[in-house]
Design a binder for these strands. Structure first.
Lengths: 243, 243
DNA sequence: CGTCGGGTTGATAACTTTCAAATTTCGTGG
DNA sequence: CCACGAAATTTGAAAGTTATCAACCCGACG
């Protein structure tokens, strides 16, 4: 399969047009496929080797556990996302990444990556773009938890996921398949699962979105965007487009 | 003055021993001094040129405003911090940075920076370390707002600031000068200023910390660390020490 | 002096969690 | 293909945390 049609290729492709050589370089990076089942951490504290992955299929999430047992999900990862970049650069891993569904990911070795950086400055730029996009997502997440109420926050997350999935062609126009449980949503949004349930019901009763049977369907996209104060600029979908 | 004694030099020095050449390279980057008064944004949406700064003196903060007028402070910046790295890499600025006190900062041009990256791989590594440290701080901030209550969160922030300031020699063993208002703390912690006030009072009454007249004094450091579940690992103070 | 930003406190309202229990869905082995 | 148990969803009631509103105090500064 053409790399440019993989989620990773699609995502980088939004930022720049890949040349044939770059596509080749990319496939290189994108081999060494591994499978992960639910319950096996992909990245965890104190793991033996520094590894990073490109998620090829399935969803994952990175999180931190507090001493009291509470957990905060830092981010959800979808196909095309780069996992564990940070733990590769800093030499400590202070968070875990686990699959949300069965997942496949390509392992990326530090050495290969730095080689690719040398070979292709444009690819490097694209990676920097991806990294700062991740940081922007993290920032937006912080803003949501800090200053939006439960309903706005939840709506915002659903809209963000929709936009991100669109980039890798995993949505239809007004819905997407979503494997997250209400517990996972709660741990990401800083809410209890019970309250997530209530909020989803309210959103449904308001005729804005439904999330049932693993499917998120937008009934009133404009209304939801207004409620969540959602501005997709931070996702930078159009990219700056080198070339 | 020797660059290695500036906050920036001290900070990078925690990560690696700077050679004479690297120090020179660093001074280069660290010229072009600018002053900022309270109320003038250093970095803001739609600004004309891509700029980044190394904060030399004073405090700053980066924040985002919501449409409703609420604001969320993303991070506080202290001397030695690199500001606006992200807005330099991605070509959009989705947040503002403003000084908290009078501040001086050295402007860094994109061209100079990439030149320095080429000249010194070790310096580049140190910068990557600094960037991922910032991201770790952001993550910890997210965890705090999502899963810690007001008291724990506040305590955690004070401890973090203490640890970060220690690295640039701006603390005494159990206290530090803190120019933040309760409004700023609230906007960072996702709390109202009124509640910050109450929380600070409780912490004081518990005999843990006092924050009065611009001075934070730890009365019972161990107790506070226990309360906040503070683990300074994420600040990676010791660095990995190249050489 | 008078004003203004910041800090402090009390009372009330709003939002979210916790606890408990019932119901539904889903994966797996028989 | 069905039955079973585990996991996830749903709802109500009560408790807890934090926000909001309002008032007052204080010190810096023109």
């Amino acid at each position: 399969m053409n790399v440019t049609q993989t989620p990773f290729g699609l995502k980088l492709g939004a930022f720049m047009n890949l040349t044939v050589e770059e596509s080749a370089e990319l496939s290189q990076l994108h081999s060494r496929r591994k499978k992960f089942a639910h319950g096996t951490d992909m990245i965890y504290q104190g793991q033996p080797k520094q590894a990073a992955y490109v998620l090829a299929s399935g969803w994952a999430c990175s999180y931190r556990l507090l001493s009291g047992g509470e957990r905060q999900i830092i981010s959800f990862n979808i196909p095309g996302d780069f996992l564990g970049m940070r733990s590769m650069m800093a030499h400590n891993t202070d968070h875990n990444i686990e699959p949300v569904t069965r997942a496949e990911a390509s392992e990326v070795l530090a050495a290969d990556l730095s080689q690719t950086f040398k070979n292709s400055p444009r690819f490097t730029a694209a990676m920097l773009w991806a990294i700062s996009r991740d940081e922007a997502i993290l920032m937006e997440h912080l803003v949501g938890i800090g200053r939006r109420d439960a309903k706005e926050r939840t709506a915002h997350l659903l809209l963000e996921l929709h936009a991100r999935l669109k980039l890798v062609k995993m949505t239809s126009s007004s819905s997407f398949a979503c494997p997250l449980t209400q517990y996972l949503l709660g741990d990401a949004l800083g809410l209890s699962a019970v309250h997530v349930n209530r909020v989803l019901r309210e959103l449904r009763e308001d005729g804005l979105v439904t999330f049932q049977h693993g499917e998120v369907e937008f009934q009133d996209l404009k209304g939801l965007i207004a409620l969540a104060d959602f501005d997709s600029d931070y996702l930078d979908q159009n990219g700056v487009l080198l070339n």
